[in-house]
Computed example of a mutant assay.
Amino acid sequence: MRIIEDKKSESSISDTQASSKDKQIAKGKDMNEEGKEINSQSQVDCADQEIYCIKLPGGAKFGEGEPKNQNHAVVFTRGEAFQAIHINQDNYWEETLKMKNLLEKFNEDHGPRPPTILGVRGHIFTKSISSLGWFMPNQEASFVTIGQRVLANLLKVCFQYRYPEVFGRIFHIIRGDKSKASRGINLSEDIFAGFNSTLRQGNITHHEYISVGKGHDVGLNQISLFEAKVACSNGEQILSRDIHHLGHRFDFFRMLSYYFTTVRFYVSSMMVVIVVHLFLYGKPYLSLSGLEFAIMKH
């Protein structure tokens, strides 16, 4: 009796499997017919058809995020100028009243050519949060505000080091767009906009009568990460083709000005650190080895 029952159960299982296979085949035929109808309908509507689907390995990030977003957003702008505002920046109503005067600078000559990028001063409003918060405003004031006066009006090596600059839209759209988005080498995408404008006979100016608020992370870890990013981006700039082209087009004094305002800071900092280490290790060596006493004796 058990054998007969087992055979009956096996036959029932095989029947259910066969029926499920038949149902799947029927569903597949129905789906194929629906797909054919959709393809025929898409051919009538001139829509795109998906023929192959290939899954790429790894992430879908092919470039830096900020410059890709900027190049994508420029397409939707209108007019002859646009202002790049960073996500951690905030404008003031009183400062916006000066925007008309700032835009008039595009019609004035600042040197041999009219300006293509108008530099604007930034105001750090997070300086009162902590004692470390005072470090970033002092750094911004010394380099972004005070330093830009000399770089723009005297040395003519002012590039875009920060937001919120006002760009000549027509000039940049027809000359390689606003930013470069190659991953790694364009880590500091803002200064490459200045390189691009200068290489294509543009002119960059700096104006201090208008400012835009800006917030920074005031933690010690965030400040160190920001300084590391600036240092790494400076090293990537030296490897870029833009610096090579600028070096062939700048005169001797302008090239020295660019060197002393960019990579020279990190070279001199490295030399200072090396000299301090040599002094700290050399002084005990002279004292313990007796060379200092021998030198003083003779």
Rank of each mutant, 00 (worst) to 15 (best):
M1W: 09
I4N: 03
S9M: 05
S11C: 01
I13L: 08
A18D: 14
Q24W: 04
A26K: 11
K27D: 13
K29E: 14
E37V: 15
Q43D: 07
Q43H: 04
Q43L: 05
A47Y: 04
C53I: 13
C53Q: 15
N71F: 02
H72F: 11
V74Q: 12
T77E: 09
I87T: 10
W93D: 03
E94Q: 08
N101P: 02
K105N: 10
F106L: 00
F106R: 03
R113Y: 10
S128R: 02
F135L: 04
I146H: 03
I146A: 00
R149D: 02
P164D: 05
G168R: 09
H172Q: 07
S179N: 10
K180E: 04
A181F: 07
N186T: 11
N186F: 08
L187N: 07
E189F: 11
F192C: 01
G194H: 06
F195R: 07
T205W: 00
S211I: 11
G213T: 06
K214F: 01
G215I: 04
V218A: 01
G219V: 04
Q222M: 09
L225Q: 14
A231V: 08
C232R: 09
E236K: 06
E236T: 10
I243Y: 01
H244L: 12
H245S: 10
L246E: 08
G247H: 10
S257D: 08
Y258T: 10
Y259A: 03
T261P: 01
T262H: 14
S269K: 12
M271F: 06
V272I: 10
Y281R: 02
G282N: 04
G290D: 14
E292L: 13
A294N: 15
M296R: 14
